[in-house]
Structure formats: C-alpha cells, structure tokens
C-alpha cells in the first residue's frame, strides 16, 4: 500500500496545469497532467499528494479526482502563503507533485452498502473522489445520500455537480445547506450536523463518510452515534500539517499513527483508539 515508484520519494515530478476552475471566491480546482499528457501516478479515492509551487512551497492535498489516465484534480482553498501564490498561477504553469500517499477510502469494503456522504466547506474535496468513484461504479453501491454545507451559497464547491449532475444520478439524493439565510437562496439554512439530524438517514446497511472542519466532524460524529450508526459504519478523513508524506518527519502523528501513512482515512472505531489530538 505504501509502495512508491520514484527512486527518491522526496523529490517531486514536474507536471503541468492544464485547466483551472474557479469553484468559490477562495477555492480553485487545478487539473494537472504529466508534461505531454497522462497522470503522474494512479490515485485511489481519498489518497493524498504533495503539490509544490516549486520556488514557494509544498503542501499536502487530497486528490479530489483522477480523470482516467488523463489528469489529477486538486480543489485547493486559499488559506496561507503557498495556496495564496497557487491561486495566482495560470494554465501552463509547471508544478511539482509527489505521491500518492495514505490509505484512501475503503472502496472495496463499502461495496453493496448505501452511502451517506456528509461534507462541510472544502471538506467536500476528498469526499468528491469517493462520490464520483461510486457514480463511476454505480452498480456496486446502494442508495447514495450527500449532505453538504458551506458558509454561504458562494462558498459551495463543485456547484454544477451539486445542483445539476449528482441529483440526476440513479438513487441519489443531494441535500445542500448554508449557514445563514441570504437573498436568492430558498434552500435549507443551518449547520451540517443539525441538518443531518433533521434528515435522520437510516443506518441500515449504510456507511457514513464525513469530512469538514474538525469542529464539524466532531458534531457530525455525535449525531451519527445518536442516529444509531455503529463505530464501524462511520468513516472520516483527517488533516494534519505534513512535510514529508512518508512517515519520517514526525509531525502528522495522532498517537502512534501517522496521518500521511496510516491515514488519512479512519473509521470512528479506529479514531476512538487514538488520542483526541486532531
């Protein structure tokens, strides 16, 4: 699972940005491919890659989708020095990329299950790779429910998929909420955990997958427990500061687990074995 093809795992491969999509005022999706085309490496849903704007910095990001052997997609929020610079680049820019890192979502173990995805803000980026994987292998999964929220309408990521494409998929329901009421929005208003409680999706033969800000995850986990989900039915993907991506540099540990290597995906049962330091 941790096998890497490159000779020196800390040296990135140079890739090219082939498209940039504005998702929200502070989130852009970058599509990257090898120079001349193709993906630099294959990624499973939920896995990570280290992206570098070479002279500026490196950052670990969830791969929000691998489009066949064509390109990788990263939905990246502008939050700091490196992502700020990244948001200024244009198509054609060369980036460094190394990976894939981490365990990814248990796509095989979830086969035959109903899937409940619960996302908040940029937390939809990693979930999206699993959501799109389910649609690509639609026969392998049962009913799909997506609950997603952001601060405002403008802050919702992947709008055309959220409002147009995903609701049209077979046996799929998409519920979107924003934190505060705003003009022109006639959808649900409120935080994700309370919307989830309101919707009360049955735990029967269902796996819940959640990602968002740590505080949202913590409340969502409580609600799921209340709704009758067992610890093995709940999956989350975590984020910590990372530098090496290969379990050496130390900082992304939660207890004896390294998020870059043993995570970022954990079941609630696994998470409960770890110190609450995330």
């Amino acid at each position: 699972m941790h096998k890497c093809n490159c000779e020196n795992p800390l040296v990135p491969e140079i890739v090219e940005v082939i498209d940039i999509i504005d998702e929200t005022p502070d989130v852009k999706t970058f599509k990257v491919s090898k120079i001349g085309g193709g993906v630099p490496f294959d990624v499973m849903p939920g896995q990570l890659a280290m992206v570098s704007l070479v002279p500026v910095g490196e950052g670990m990001f969830s791969v929000s989708w691998q489009e066949d052997n064509d390109h990788l997609q990263f939905a990246i929020k502008r939050v700091g020095l490196m992502t700020d610079e990244l948001h200024r680049i244009e198509v054609g820019q060369k980036l460094g990329v190394r990976g894939p890192y981490g365990n990814g979502f248990p796509v095989e173990a979830c086969k035959g299950k109903n899937m409940l995805f619960i996302g908040g803000g940029i937390g939809l980026a990693p979930l999206r790779s699993f959501i799109k994987y389910c649609f690509k292998h639609r026969e392998d999964y049962g009913k799909i429910t997506i609950i997603y929220g952001s601060r405002s309408y403008a802050d919702l990521c992947f709008k055309d998929e959220l409002f147009d494409k995903w609701p049209k998929e077979k046996e799929t329901e998409v519920y979107v909420t924003i934190d505060k009421p705003e003009e022109g929005w006639d959808g649900h208003v409120g935080f994700v955990p309370s919307y989830l409680e309101e919707l009360n999706i049955s735990p029967e033969n269902t796996i819940a997958v959640t990602c968002g800000p740590p505080v949202m995850i913590k409340f969502v986990l409580e609600v799921l427990e209340k709704m009758g989900y067992t610890d093995d039915q709940v999956i989350t993907t975590l984020e910590m500061r990372m530098k090496c991506g290969i379990g050496k540099c130390g900082r992304c540990n939660i207890g004896s687990e390294y998020i870059c290597l043993d995570g970022p995906v954990f079941t609630l049962a696994q998470l409960k074995q770890l110190p609450p330091e995330w």
Binding site: C4, E7, K248
Partner: peptide
C-alpha cells in the same frame, strides 16, 4: 523501514 526508504 515502514514502506519508504529515505534516499538522502
């Protein structure tokens, strides 16, 4: 050990 060798 543990999956990756640090080449440096």
């Amino acid at each position: 050990t543990c999956g990756y060798e640090d080449a440096f």
